[in-house]
Design a protein around this nucleic acid. Structure first.
Lengths: 112, 112
DNA sequence: CTGAATCCACGTCGATACTG
DNA sequence: CAGTATCGACGTGGATTCAG
């Protein structure tokens, strides 16, 4: 978590944005929900347009917010596994609704 | 719309992000869903931490994407009204799920 | 393989002032 | 009232390199 967007008028949306805003977080969560457990390199493959650096940063933030779990195997070479945490699963309806909308209106923005 | 996030692996989330990403868009939509029609100054009051400049920009983008409608009354002084468009209402489930989550986990990020 | 660290270009955003 | 224009500070993100 980096900052708190204040919004005195009472805006629950802000809370949600705190967790899933960030350029790629919701996409990462989408894939983790879909596949359960993914390694770093597997996530990279699924997000070809995200740099390693950015992916690492977004994952770190998600982990910091306890949305995902990270398991590191001290093998050589190292191997890591990411999965949605118990807390993170509460976000499933949000991601799901985004998926549904994005699927239904898939054609809206395919052409520039 | 500013750019297309490419994601060959088939990611409907990206489509949704195209429309509701942007720092304050989902919050704006949340308020518009809630109140139906809002003037510029009313939106400003509901988003005290957003500058006029940013609010105007986000509204312009939402309008450009046909998510909201803008009605200008050529009175003196000028008066504008914003409301969710017919297309924009399809986003209601997404915003709603964000609202539900943010309400349920309201306490998660109230303390730094 | 999975990152973290450094450097730097670029865009974003806030503050301020201005217009119709 | 509802914006737009300009400027400057700041953060973000990409490329590259290094490390465990």
């Amino acid at each position: 978590m980096k900052e708190i967007y204040n919004c005195d008028v009472g805006c629950p949306i802000q809370n949600t944005l705190q967790v899933i805003s960030g350029k790629w977080k919701s996409v990462i969560l989408y894939h983790l929900f879909k596949f359960g457990v993914l390694r770093f390199s597997e996530l990279q493959a699924k997000l070809p347009y995200v740099t390693k650096r950015m992916l690492a940063r977004q994952l770190a933030e998600l982990e910091e917010d306890n949305v995902i779990d990270k398991k590191v195997y001290a093998t050589i070479p190292v191997k890591t596994e990411y999965s949605v945490s118990e807390f993170g699963t509460t976000l499933q309806p949000v991601i799901k609704s985004m998926e549904i909308w994005g699927t239904a209106y898939n054609d809206v923005y395919t052409v520039k």
